[in-house]
Structures are given as structure tokens and as C-alpha cells.
């Protein structure tokens, strides 16, 4: 016994795909004439409409003094404040009797880029950087030692607005 199937009769203009296709094409082609929002990364890294925020917190940089030595005095506040426990610091004394870091290493894999190390540093030595291109060929290259941290050249993060330090 055959089952009776009811075939709906709809108006021609509702079942034709031609109309929908043309509508979609019209939208697509209309974008050709709109302002461009894509950037040709990596040739272009910023445009007038978009730049990395000056408060971006990326991989670290250690600032140096006039003699090129790290400003760090190995006070031990950054390993203490670090919530990810990614900073290794061993203090020592140089030939002039100044305290300085014998070992200063940051494991960028462990780092959560909270910026507390920069915020807590009394010597304005360690900073998080406005930088995001960190690829390497091996994992161990992600433990940045003191020499590498000092050699970074990217700009450092501004954690707060200097004209409004309390955020008021």
C-alpha cells in the first residue's frame, strides 16, 4: 500500500535559487569597494588604525645602565611576587662589592605575563615587553638568561598611564 505524499505547491519566486545567489554575490562584491581592514602581516605590523597597545605584556627585557650592566641588584622581589614561579635568581657580589645577580633566568613558557615583576622592581630593571614574536627552534631557548634579557631591544610595557598613575 503506497503512502500518500502531499506535494506542496509554492510560488516560483520562493523556490528559485537564482535570487539568493545574486543577493550573496552582491554582498561579496560590495566588499571590494569598502575600506580594507586586513594587514599584510608580517610585512606590515601596524597600521594607522591598529597598533599594539603600549600596555601589552610580552616577553621580558632587562634594562641596563650606562656601562651596559643590568640594572638588577638581585633584591629578590620578582621571584617572590611571581605567581608562576618562573624567575630563578641567585645573588652575588661583584669585585666592587655591589650586589648583582649571578644567575637570572626567566622561563618564558611558565610565565603568565602578569607584569608583577615589572611592577615590583625597585630598580626599574626587569620589564615586560611590547613584543609577541617569540618563536624558536628548540624549547630550551625559551629560558631567557640575563645576557639574553639585556640584549632584547623591543620597547617595554607601560603598565599604567604615566599621567594618571592611580587610574583615576
Amino acid at each position: 500500500m503506497a503512502i500518500g505524499v502531499k506535494v506542496m505547491k509554492r510560488p516560483e519566486k520562493d523556490v528559485s535559487y537564482l535570487r539568493a545567489t545574486l543577493k550573496g554575490m552582491a554582498l561579496t562584491f560590495s566588499h571590494l569597494f569598502r575600506p580594507k581592514v586586513t594587514m599584510q602581516y608580517p610585512e606590515e605590523k601596524s597600521s594607522k588604525d591598529w597598533t599594539l597597545s603600549s600596555r601589552w605584556r610580552g616577553t621580558h627585557r632587562m634594562l641596563t645602565d650606562e656601562q651596559g650592566r643590568a640594572k638588577c641588584v638581585a633584591c629578590g622581589l620578582c621571584p617572590q611576587i611571581c605567581p608562576a614561579n618562573c624567575i630563578k635568581l641567585v645573588p652575588g657580589e661583584d669585585e666592587d662589592g655591589h650586589r648583582y645577580p649571578l644567575i637570572y633566568e626567566i622561563d618564558e613558557f611558565r610565565c603568565v605575563f602578569c607584569g608583577y615583576c615589572q611592577e615590583v622592581c625597585p630598580e626599574e630593571a626587569i620589564h615586560v615587553g611590547v613584543h609577541y614574536e617569540n618563536s624558536e627552534y628548540s624549547r630550551d631557548r625559551f629560558v631567557y638568561d640575563l645576557e639574553r634579557l639585556c640584549a632584547q631591544t623591543h620597547p617595554v610595557s607601560t603598565l599604567w598611564d604615566p599621567s594618571d598613575p592611580r587610574g583615576e
Partner: peptide, 9 residues
């Protein structure tokens, strides 16, 4: 003890 450790460590 000079420069060996910080008190909180």
C-alpha cells in the same frame, strides 16, 4: 651571610 639569601626566603 652577606648577599646569601633574602629574609623571606
Amino acid at each position: 651571610f652577606l648577599h646569601k639569601a633574602r629574609a623571606w626566603e
